[in-house]
Structures are given as structure tokens and as C-alpha cells.
Computed example of a mutant assay.
Amino acid sequence: MIEIGARLSDFLGKVRHVKIGLMLLLLVFLTLNILIPFTQLKAQTTTGSSHVLITRGADRASQAEFSSLIAGVSSVCAIGVPGPLWALSENVVPIVSGDEDTTPVPSVVAVATVFGDGRVVALGHEGFLTNEAIGLFDNKRFGNNIVDWLDKSGTKKMLVTTGHREWYGGANFDSFKQELESHGYVVARFSGQISASSLSGVGVVLIGNAWEDFSQQEIDTLKSFVSNGGGLLLIGLGWSWEPYNPGKTLDDYPMNKIGEVFGIRWIDGYISDPTNNYNGQPVFHTFYPNIELQTLYQAFSYINTTTRSHQTDLPSLLQNDVVLRRSYVNAHLLIATASRALSASSTQRREIYDFYTNLINSNPQYFKKNTVYDKMTQSV
């Protein structure tokens, strides 16, 4: 389905003189290809699951101040191929993303959220802060900003986990460790089991792409730590997990088991940018609050607003307005990504199904040949 959507997006970008009827047909075709997988699965929240996805939090993301995360930062780059992050909650805010020609959609590589009294930041590759990368572009400033923002209580104490097969936190963390220590932080590596006692007095915990499971007790401890004012920096890489762990999926990825507690998920995909790159690796220069169409909820809002604002002329606008066409198609493609990125029990699947049924029901002039969706006979 993603491939179909990508080909259609490319086609729409090239066509300049398509008849309005054909453009409308293509729009409906794209929408229905996204909708069909969700009509086949009525997603339900798994009440017995030990990892519950959150879609609403006690603290609204809009109440948080995220600007300090990108103060003095104009561009960042990872050594390696970064992968995208997916926001499972409206409270998760994109901090760094690709631009209009970055692929795939979404291309978010840094997110932040407020959880209880604490804060969480997640990155889409450890290569932003390794020894080789810390001096590139504004990576050092970005890393310092992240730790300062997470250390809400000003403890100046960080714990770096190393007991769960972490890819980052050992020798490749030395340069950033020295940088933090030069700013007064006490940084300790810790290979034991995470517990309330091991986190006593700690302001920030760093988990750098762990490939070994954390126990449920450890996850609960981290959740309590953040809820009570602690800061958590999670670094992962979705695309690397499945190829090196045959028989397992991203649902089994240890970073996702922690991240989903806070509304964050690493998904498959290689981020690339043909116009902004350093030795082939994407250079990111789009930051909060100027990030658009990179979360499910941004896509919902854009599609709804655009469709409502153009009750009669949307097909002709899609034909003639290159910017609107790209944004409208990308919004649908982002939603389509959920068909492969989300776990089967994700509550966002139901949100997507409801979104499309409401969109079709509210706009019969564009969908189902002027036949309004019948919720009594067509619901799953």
C-alpha cells in the first residue's frame, strides 16, 4: 500500500493537466487504499498488556516550553543512517524533522514530551552524539540543550545504563560525557538493574539503544522516576532491530517497550535527503515549532481543515496547486504508514478508522459516488 501511495504521489507531482474527474478518482483511490486495512481489523486496547499506549496525558504538550531544546541550533546531523520516530500521543511534540524533500514521511528524528512532573526526549539515532559526531554542525549544543532541559530539578547528575546491550553509552559516549562534565554534570555509567535506589539523586537517565529487555519492574521504576520529575533520554534505531533479530518485530524492540509508556515508538525506515546531506547523511534544519505534517494528529488536522475549506473546489486545487497537492497527499501517506508501523493492538488504529469514516461521511460530494457512509451497515 505504501508503494502504491508513493507511486501515486509521484504521479500527482508530475501531472499538470489532469482532468478534474481523474484527479478526484485518484484522491478517492488513495483514501480507500489507506482505509481498507483498518476496516479489516477493529483494534481494541489490550487490557492485559503490561505496556499501555497513551493517547491522552495528564500534562498537555501545548503547556510545555520546548524552545530551549533548540536554542542556538540551526542544523544537526547523525553519523549513520537515522530512522523515524512515531508519536503515539498528541502530547509528543516533534523537535527535529526533515524538510519537504526528505523521505520517508514521517522523517522525525527527535521528539519530546512532558509526562507527569518529568520530561522525556527521544532520538532516532545514537550517531547524533557519538565521539565522531559531537563536534559536527550544532550537535554539541543540541546535546547540551537536551540534558539541561531534562534536568528539570537542576541536580547535575546523570546515570547512563550499560547493562542491557546498549549500543551507546560505552566508549562512543566518552566525548559527550566529557562535555557534560565540563558543564558541571556528574555522569555515571551503571550496568545493574534499574531500581528506585539506583536512581536516587539522579536527574537524568540515558538509555542508548538497548537490545536486551528491561524487566517490567525496571520499566515501572522509570515511569515513576519521570512522573516524579526525572528526565529520560531515549535513543533508538527502528530499522536496525528486525534484520538482526530474526523472528522478532518492532513490538519486541526493548526501546519500544519503554518508549510506548511515554507515547513514543521507533519505526522502520531509512531517512535520506537529496539536497541537505553531509557525506550522504541527512542534515536536519527543520525544528520546533516549524514542523508540519509529521504526526498522525497533524495529518488529521490538515486533511480536515483543507477539505472543509474547499467543499466544491478541492479537486481543481489538487490539480493546480503544487504545494497543496504535495501536503494533502503526504498527509494521507503519513496515515498510511500506520498500517505497517503500529502494533496490532494500537489504539491509534481505531482513531484512524474513525477519522476516515467521519471524513467520508462529512464529504459525500468527494467520496463513495455521493453515497453517504452508513454506520449501521458498514461498521466493522
Rank of each mutant, 00 (worst) to 15 (best):
M1T: 00
I4R: 02
R7E: 02
S9F: 00
L24A: 15
L25G: 10
I36P: 00
F38K: 02
T47Q: 12
S49G: 10
V52Q: 13
D59F: 12
A61Q: 07
Q63H: 09
S68C: 07
L69K: 11
I70G: 01
A71P: 00
D99R: 12
T102I: 01
A110I: 08
A110M: 15
V111Q: 09
F115S: 05
A122E: 05
H125Y: 09
H125G: 00
L129I: 09
T130P: 01
G135C: 06
L136Y: 05
D138A: 07
N139Y: 07
F142H: 05
D148T: 11
L150E: 02
K152L: 15
K157Y: 03
F176T: 07
H183E: 11
V186Q: 15
S198P: 03
L199N: 08
S200L: 11
V205G: 03
L206R: 05
D213A: 11
D220N: 15
L232G: 02
I235Q: 03
W239L: 07
S240R: 14
P243E: 10
T249N: 04
M255V: 12
M255A: 11
G259Y: 09
E260N: 06
D268L: 10
G269H: 05
N276I: 00
Y278S: 06
P282S: 10
V283L: 14
V283T: 10
F284N: 02
N290V: 04
E292S: 15
E292C: 07
Q294C: 03
Y297A: 04
Q298R: 04
S301A: 15
S301D: 13
N304T: 15
N304C: 04
T307S: 08
H310V: 04
H310S: 08
T312F: 14
L317D: 00
A331M: 02
I335Q: 01
S339N: 07
S345A: 14
R349E: 03
F355V: 03
T357D: 02
L359T: 04
K368I: 08
K375Y: 13
K375S: 12
